[in-house]
Design a protein around this nucleic acid. Structure first.
Lengths: 211, 211
DNA sequence: TACCGATGTTAGATATGCTAACATATGTTA
DNA sequence: TAACATATGTTAGCATATCTAACATCGGTA
């Protein structure tokens, strides 16, 4: 019990790691997210995540109900990261609403290409993460960041249907860019794709009302 | 050559089923597609597909290399169906190019909502179906159907970058609609979503050149 | 007819999700 | 300090999955 072969850290931490991990649930979610990015949601295994962390394959079930429950927590951390990235992008742009909106779109796509499998997990429907209230609310908050900016642009209230419809148009396009990019489907177009150009062009056209 | 090995008559099929299934590879792809729609790509098992068809769990490996190989064939049949649906929708509209384009977009979304898991498999990146040349080409052909119509609308050649860029804008939006619909993500908007309205509105705005 | 390749079968190796029973560490309370 | 309760680990094991190996059978062809 005096030996600590893992790391010459504070004695208490090392002593805890002799038997208790200390913060397994957080470490597991983090490790699973890494494995998902490497193997995809369909092919990763929590057994391998356990091996990497150094606990038995039964340990996770003291913290999570099942595999889907772990994925649910991975998705939730993802939504937190995405919302943060969008807010940061918005605040980094000048006070021009159109540029702010386009900037948030780019941040959305950057997150998607940087965390493709997590992104697909977050917005996918299997396993059904939407049943979890807190996960769903975290997702809604993400959309609200866009609505606010759109509302100030068209001079309407955030809760006005007009604001929401306009936001849906923009979100839909940006989500399409993200999806087709991370799945490498733009190959079919056989022209080089610059996401920024795409977003700026579409933002300009979609914010125009036709009649 | 006079015989019909593709589809044996009922009595012949029954006789063959004593030992040989007759057309296991086709039946397996069909059954797997059903199970994928029920359970999702991540959770289905080919073992269950075997049970439903009535063969041992080892039988598929006389026809396919592995699980991913089966999924590759499922995706290919999906691309065939999608291309057919788009062509049919195009031919069902009057000769107005804008309406034809919007019609193809609606067919795209209808296919997605009708075969959500197959759709996700087709456009997803895990397992990597794009490495298979014939599957990739089948996907490209699907995009070409759109390009042709867009090219006639803007009066350019199908191979012109302008035609392709314009098509990418439209495809991106429609793909976004399909993805967000089948994953039930429009809940975040908290307004009722009519895909047709979305597509018609966006098609109109995106086909407009701004400057 | 006799062979041979295509297409099945059974048995089994390995991996995974998850449960049950048990062990250890930590914190509270007498 | 001693003892208990709870949280969090462990090992053992069950059920099921993918895929391989060795063997069996069918159907076509020399």
């Amino acid at each position: 019990m005096t030996s600590k072969e893992t790391e010459p850290r504070p004695d208490e931490a090392a002593a805890r790691q002799a038997y208790h991990h200390g913060s397994l649930s957080g470490a597991l979610v983090e490790q699973v997210r890494k494995l998902i990015e490497r193997d995809g949601v369909a092919d990763f295994s929590i057994a391998e995540a356990c091996k990497a962390i150094g606990v038995s394959t039964a340990a996770p079930y003291k913290h999570f109900a099942d595999k889907h429950d772990i994925l649910r927590h991975v998705a939730q951390t993802g939504f937190g990261d995405l919302t943060g990235a969008m807010e940061q992008a918005r605040d980094g742009e000048p006070k021009d609403a159109v540029r702010r909106i386009a900037g948030m779109g780019k941040a959305y796509v950057t997150f998607a290409t940087g965390n493709p499998e997590t992104f697909k997990l977050m917005f996918g429907s299997t396993p059904d993460l939407k049943k979890d209230d807190s996960t769903r609310e975290t997702g809604h908050r993400c959309f609200d960041v866009l609505i606010e900016e759109v509302a100030t642009f068209i001079g309407a209230d955030s809760s006005a249907p007009q604001s929401r419809f306009q936001s849906v148009l923009l979100w839909t396009f940006v989500h399409g860019v993200a999806s087709l990019l991370i799945d490498k489907d733009y190959d079919a177009a056989r022209i080089p794709i610059d996401p920024s150009v795409l977003i700026e062009e579409a933002t300009g056209r979609l914010l125009q009302e036709q009649r």
